[in-house]
Simulated scan of single mutants.
Amino acid sequence: MADDDPAEQIKELSATLASVESVMDLDAKRTEIEQLREQSADPDLWSDQDNAQKVTRRLSWLESEVNRVKTISQRLEDLAVLFELAASEDDPDTRTEADTELGSLRKDVGELEVRTLLSGPYDEREALVSINSQAGGVDAADWAQMLQRMYLRWAETRGYPTDVYETSYAEEAGIKSTTFAVRAPFAYGTLRGEHGTHRLVRISPFDNQSRRQTSFAGVDVVPVVEQSDHIDIDESELRIDVYRSSGPGGQGVNTTDSAVRITHLPSGIVVSCQNERSQIQNRATAMNVLQAKLLERKRQEERAEIDELRGEGARSWGTQMRNYVLHPYQSVKDVRTGYETGNTGAVLDGDIDELIDAEIRWMRSRERGEDV
Rank of each mutant, 00 (worst) to 15 (best):
P6E: 13
Q9S: 07
I10W: 02
E12T: 14
L13R: 00
L13G: 01
A15L: 04
A15H: 01
A18Q: 13
S19R: 15
V20E: 10
V20D: 06
E21Y: 01
V23W: 04
M24F: 12
D25C: 00
D25E: 09
L26R: 09
D27K: 08
K29G: 01
I33G: 03
L45I: 08
L45R: 00
S47E: 15
N51G: 00
V55H: 07
E65L: 12
V69N: 10
I72C: 02
S73H: 12
R75Y: 01
F83W: 05
E89G: 02
T96F: 07
T96P: 00
A98S: 08
A98Q: 05
D99S: 06
S104F: 11
K107G: 03
V109K: 02
L117M: 13
G120T: 09
A127V: 12
A127H: 08
L128I: 15
L128A: 04
S130E: 14
G137R: 06
A140R: 00
A144H: 05
M150R: 06
M150K: 12
L152E: 14
W154C: 12
W154N: 01
Y160N: 03
P161T: 04
V164Q: 03
S168M: 10
Y169Q: 09
A170T: 11
E172C: 09
V182S: 03
F186L: 11
G189S: 11
G189M: 09
G193L: 06
H195Q: 09
G196Q: 04
G196C: 04
R199I: 13
R202N: 11
S210I: 00
Q213H: 15
S215L: 05
I231E: 08
D232G: 00
D234M: 12
E235D: 14
E235H: 11
E237G: 04
E237C: 05
R239G: 01
S245I: 02
G247S: 06
Q251Y: 07
N254K: 03
N254R: 03
S258P: 04
A259D: 01
V260G: 05
I262T: 03
P266T: 08
V270N: 02
C273G: 00
Q274D: 07
E276H: 13
R277T: 13
N282W: 01
A284G: 02
V289T: 12
A292S: 15
R297K: 15
K298G: 11
K298A: 15
R299F: 13
E301H: 09
E305M: 07
E305K: 13
R310Q: 12
R310P: 00
G311I: 11
E312S: 09
R315G: 05
S316Y: 04
H327L: 00
P328N: 03
Y329V: 09
Y329N: 11
K333E: 12
D334C: 01
D334P: 04
T337N: 05
D349V: 00
D353V: 09
A358T: 13
I360P: 10
I360H: 02
S365D: 15
E370G: 09
D371A: 14
